[in-house]
């Protein structure tokens, strides 16, 4: 199942990038901050500033951000760039035709991207957390960037100012009689605005926001679920005793 999903994801992903995917790295576990309103708000800010220029989130309404503790005024003052109505969805102003010229295809809608990318080795959040932290310089690519989790990706490293430029380091190891390159770690080439730890933190916030945005009712869902189960347990006890009361006369 996981293999099917992975290959599906890769095919879907790469079908609009010009090249076929080769191999990817294992996904890192994204920190879970789905109940941390501060982190979600920071993630929302990063999302609106860095992602929403090219990607839409066209099923997500700006005023739904009140669920993560923002007021409508705060949303209007800080997060509305493409519209002036807080009840609007997160559309994008980029022309699809231009997008096709620039990137070889339209950047996918990100509303439910975190849900769709679950599968191989983790959740969609894990995937996004890994993907946004594994960009490296590759002059052979049109954008000048490549990615370890998503080889030959069409999107350039939008967060490069924050992360700085990095280079993957490889070990040459023997495998089945062949010499292969095994990913070993990173070398920082130019410093970013954020330290590596701060960058990981920021990406974690962004990814948690995207995870939340993919299903804004998920926290409510879990809370209600606890009450529903407690009610059912009590009712089950009553049903069990009721049943026993009736059945004791059956011999």
């Amino acid at each position: 199942m996981k293999k099917i999903i992975l290959s599906l994801l890769i095919s879907v992903f790469t079908s609009w990038s010009a090249f076929a995917a080769t191999d990817t790295i294992p996904w890192d576990k994204a920190p879970n901050k789905i109940n941390d309103l501060g982190a979600l708000q920071h993630g929302a800010k990063l999302f609106v500033n860095y992602c929403l220029n090219c990607h839409a989130a066209s099923y997500m309404r700006f005023n739904r951000l009140t669920d993560i503790g923002l007021t409508e005024q705060q949303i209007k003052d800080n997060l509305l760039f493409t519209t002036d109505k807080v009840g609007e969805t997160m559309k994008v102003s980029m022309d699809p035709k231009q997008a096709k010229d620039w990137f070889g295809g339209n950047p996918p809608d990100l509303t439910v991207i975190a849900r769709s990318r679950s599968g191989h080795g983790g959740t969609g959040a894990d995937y996004l957390y890994t993907y946004l932290r594994t960009y490296y310089r590759d002059e052979s690519k049109a954008t000048g960037w490549n990615n370890l989790a998503f080889p030959n990706v069409a999107m350039p490293h939008v967060l490069w100012e924050l992360q700085g430029e990095r280079k993957p380091l490889y070990d040459t190891v023997q495998s089945h009689g062949h010499e292969v390159h095994a990913f070993k770690g990173w070398q920082q080439v130019t410093p970013g605005k954020l330290s590596p730890a701060e960058y990981d933190e920021a990406v974690a916030d962004l990814v948690n926001y995207m995870q939340w945005m993919s299903e804004p009712s998920q926290n409510t869902r879990v809370i209600i679920g606890v009450w529903v189960l407690m009610f059912l347990l009590v009712f089950m006890f009553i049903a069990w005793r009721l049943n026993a009361a009736f059945w004791k006369e059956i011999r």
């Binding site: 599906l8 879907v12 769709s116």
Partner: peptide
């Protein structure tokens, strides 16, 4: 989602007649 068995993950990607999934 029940681990992708009740709601399959790639069903959160809109249908696209031009992109055939591998499996």
């Amino acid at each position: 989602e029940f681990g992708g068995y009740f709601l399959e993950y790639n069903n959160f990607i809109p249908a696209d007649p031009l992109k055939t999934p591998l499996h």
